[in-house]
Nucleic acid binder design. Structure first.
Lengths: 263, 263
DNA sequence: CAGTGGTCTAGACCACGCG
DNA sequence: GCGTGGTCTAGACCACTGG
C-alpha cells in the first residue's frame, strides 16, 4: 500500500473534479455513501475530503440540503496599472468600481478610519520613527454583496494634519492619490510587492473566506520626490481575484485581447 | 461554548506563535502533552494542530527527534521588472541567479524541454489555433538546494522552427528574451497576471511543498509588434518568495530602500 | 422529521529516525 | 528501544435546515 486510503480516495475525487466529471456546483457523494463505496470509516472519509477542502476544490455545506460542493471560481480582474497611475487622473475607488461593473458585477464598498501607532516594519516603510502615529484608512470592497477584497492604507500623521480630508471616515470623491497630487504631494514612484499566503483569522472573518482560500496581497508604497507618503495593503481573496498589469505598448495587447480596451 | 475545543486550542497556540512566545524553529508541545494540558482526546488535538498546519504556521516532523515546529519564513525577493525588461539586456536566468546570490543564497536550476499540443486556453493566449503544437521549456529553480520556484514557458512551434536554439533542452546563455530580440522578435509589450491559489499535487511534488503552502503564480505574456510570442508561468512557493516591481523614478525608491540598488 | 456535515471520544497499529 | 507523528476504526451526540 504505497498511498494511504484517504489520499487514494481524495485522488479519485480530485480526478473527477479536474477532469470535469464533477462540475462546479455539483455535489460529491455524501459521507455515508463514500464510507460504503470505499469500505472505510467516517473519519477516513473526512480525512480524504479535508484534503479537497484545503485545496480549495470543495466546500462543505451543513444541513439537510447541504453536502460537499465543487467550488465555483469566478475571477475578478483588478488592473493595478489603471488605478492610480501617475499619468492617469482616474480616482482609485472609482477605478475599482468601474472595473467591477465592466465585468458584469455589482460593486459596493465600506470605509472606516483608524488612528494607529506604527509597527517597526510599517514605520520603516514610511520612513518615520517607530511608535509614531499614522492614519489607517480601510476600505472593504464587496462584489455582488459578498466581501471580495480590502484595502488598508497608512498615511503619516503629519501629512494627514496638512491634508485634513484624510481624517474624514468617508470616501474621497476624486481619490486620495489625486487629492494628494493637488496639494503638492504627487506620487512619482511606486514600490509594489506581490505575496501569496494563507489568511489570518481576522482576514477570514472580514472577507468571509472558506477554508482552503488563499490571500493575494499587493503592497504598494507610494513616493513623492521628497519621501514615502503612504503604504497600501490590498488584500484579495485568492479564489475570486487576480491582478493584471501591463508594460510597454498597451495597444499591442489590446489587439490580441479585445477585452483589454485601454479606453 | 461558542467556540469548539479544537479552535480554542488552535487559537491559544496561534497566539503564542504570532506574539513571539513561540519563535520560528521552536517545537510545540507534543500531542500527548496537549491531550493532558487541555484534557481532550488525541483527535481533537490533531484537529487543532491541523488548522495551524493548513495556515502554514507549523509543520509536522515525524520520528523520535521530530515534533511540530514553527515554520521559518525566509523570503526571496524576485524583481519582475529587472529580469527581461525590454530596455535591459540582462539574461533572464542570470538575472534570477544573481538576485538569489545577492540575497545570500546558493542558486541552481534544471532545464527540461517538452513538445505539447496546446490547451484551448493557452492557444488563445498565444493567438494560435487550438491543438496546434508548442515548445514548453521548463526551468526548476533551487535555492540552497531546495526547489523554490519553476518557470514554464510556451513558444509557438513555428517560432521554434525559425529559432532552433529554442528546441535545445539547455539553458540559453544570453537568455531567450535577448535571443529572440537578436533574431528580430523583440518583445515590446508584456501582459502580467498575478494569482494566488493552492498548489496542484504536481506542484506539491515538484516544489516539495509542505501542507499549508500557497502558490504565487505570475503569468507573463510577451508581445512583439506582430503577435504574442510566448507565455511564461512563473510558479513560486508562496512561503519563500515574493515578487517586486517598481514604477516611476527608481532612484527615489533607492534613496529610502538602500537594498534596492538599481542593478 | 430526517439527513446533512461538525465535533469529539477512546482506543489501535504503523513508519520513521535518533540514541 | 522508544517516542514522535501518520493512519484508521467504531462508535457517539450535536447543529443546522429543507420538506
Amino acid at each position: 500500500m504505497g498511498q494511504p486510503k484517504y489520499r487514494q480516495i481524495a485522488s479519485e475525487l480530485r480526478g473527477q473534479i479536474v477532469s470535469g466529471t464533477l462540475r462546479e456546483g455539483d455535489r460529491l457523494p455524501t459521507e455515508p455513501q463514500l464510507q460504503d463505496q470505499y469500505g472505510v470509516s467516517r473519519n477516513t472519509v473526512r480525512d480524504a475530503t479535508a484534503l479537497l477542502v484545503n485545496e480549495g476544490l470543495v466546500h462543505r455545506v451543513p444541513g439537510r440540503a447541504g453536502g460537499m460542493i465543487v467550488r465555483r471560481k469566478v475571477t475578478l480582474t483588478f488592473h493595478a496599472h489603471r488605478a492610480e497611475m501617475p499619468a492617469q487622473p482616474t480616482a482609485e475607488t472609482d477605478a475599482w468600481r468601474s472595473e467591477v461593473v465592466a465585468q458584469g458585477y455589482e460593486a459596493s464598498q465600506e470605509f472606516s478610519l483608524m488612528i494607529q501607532s506604527l509597527s517597526p516594519e510599517l514605520a520603516e516603510r514610511l520612513h518615520v520613527e517607530t511608535d509614531s502615529v499614522a492614519v489607517l484608512r480601510r476600505c472593504v470592497r464587496y462584489v455582488n454583496g459578498q466581501p471580495s477584497s480590502l484595502q488598508d492604507t497608512y498615511y503619516p500623521m503629519d501629512l494627514a494634519e496638512e491634508i485634513r480630508e484624510l481624517l474624514s471616515p468617508k470616501d474621497i470623491p476624486q481619490g486620495t492619490t489625486r487629492l494628494l497630487a493637488e496639494r503638492g504631494h504627487e506620487q512619482t514612484a511606486y514600490y509594489d510587492e506581490y505575496i501569496s499566503r494563507m489568511p489570518t483569522p481576522e482576514e477570514t472573518n472580514l472577507l468571509g473566506l472558506q477554508p482552503g482560500t488563499t490571500i493575494l496581497l499587493h503592497v504598494r508604497t507610494g513616493y513623492t520626490e521628497q519621501r514615502p507618503v503612504r503604504v497600501s495593503f490590498n488584500v484579495f481573496a485568492g479564489d475570486r481575484n487576480q491582478i493584471v498589469t501591463t508594460h510597454g505598448d498597451v495597444r499591442l495587447i489590446a489587439r490580441f485581447r479585445p477585452e483589454e480596451t485601454p479606453e
